[in-house]
Design a protein around this nucleic acid. Structure first.
Lengths: 126, 126
DNA sequence: ACTTACCTTTACGTTAACGTAAACTACATA
DNA sequence: TATGTAGTTTACGTTAACGTAAAGGTAAGT
């Protein structure tokens, strides 16, 4: 039954402790306490991982919280569940848009690289 | 030889004119002028499209400017070209990381959806 | 001539996501 | 006992990416 200190998590994910506390202020994390000191469970660690993944994808912290809350099984209400499914669909749409953007950007990068190499060769001959 | 007004572009890309002017302030766009008025070429329009694509991918405007400048062929210097190739590679790395993130998130979303549907069914029977 | 619909610049305001500093506590170790 | 190391709260500061007036210019239509 592993647990983690705030600085351990900070080191592992290459963020500052301030950042982790900030996520807690926003209600994205709520670690246990031993006295005053925060004690993080593996579940907390997973939440942090999800938050940072969301960040890399350009999600706001609020968006991330929405998504993360989806994983919690405590949603009994039917309307809640339907809302969640909608949210999931909407996120999927956004992600697919991102996939499209990325593939286009990668294509552009390839072309840019080709242009660079071509330019380099011609430079070599001048 | 098409051209566009600022509000035309704003409408097309669903941003405000303030946003477009802001990009110009940061040196990401430099449209021609007819008197005081900005006149955008198809090339300007493409640049705007690239900027917004970058935004969707979570790039900063500075990052976007770097990438966009890669497409300009006016880079004669060899060192410049090598730097560009490095930048391209680094962007590619970042994008591949994003692809990985997205595939993982999509997987998570699928699981969350399954959980939702399961929960819904059990609710129906209670 | 007057309104409407654009365009312009200048400049202060706002939000998100932290950074940074101050001031304090608790535990371990030289 | 002092020095360090890691934790805490509180609170003001900062940066990016615009928002939001304010104040004005210009050309088209009525």
């Amino acid at each position: 039954m592993a647990e983690y200190s705030i600085s351990e998590l900070a080191k592992e994910f290459e963020v500052t402790t301030r950042t982790i506390r900030h996520y807690e202020e926003l209600g994205l994390l709520s670690p246990a306490r031993r006295g005053q000191t925060r004690v993080y469970s593996p579940a907390d660690r997973t939440r942090l991982r999800l938050i940072l993944r969301g960040k890399r994808l350009g999600l706001s912290l609020d968006d991330s919280r929405e998504i993360i809350d989806m994983y919690e099984p405590g949603k009994t209400n039917v309307d809640q569940l339907k809302k969640l499914i909608d949210a999931i669909q909407s996120q999927r749409t956004k992600l697919n848009q991102q996939l499209d953007d990325i593939s286009k950007l990668l294509k552009d990068l390839n072309q840019a690289e080709v242009d660079c190499v071509t330019a380099l060769k011609s430079t070599g001959r001048t």
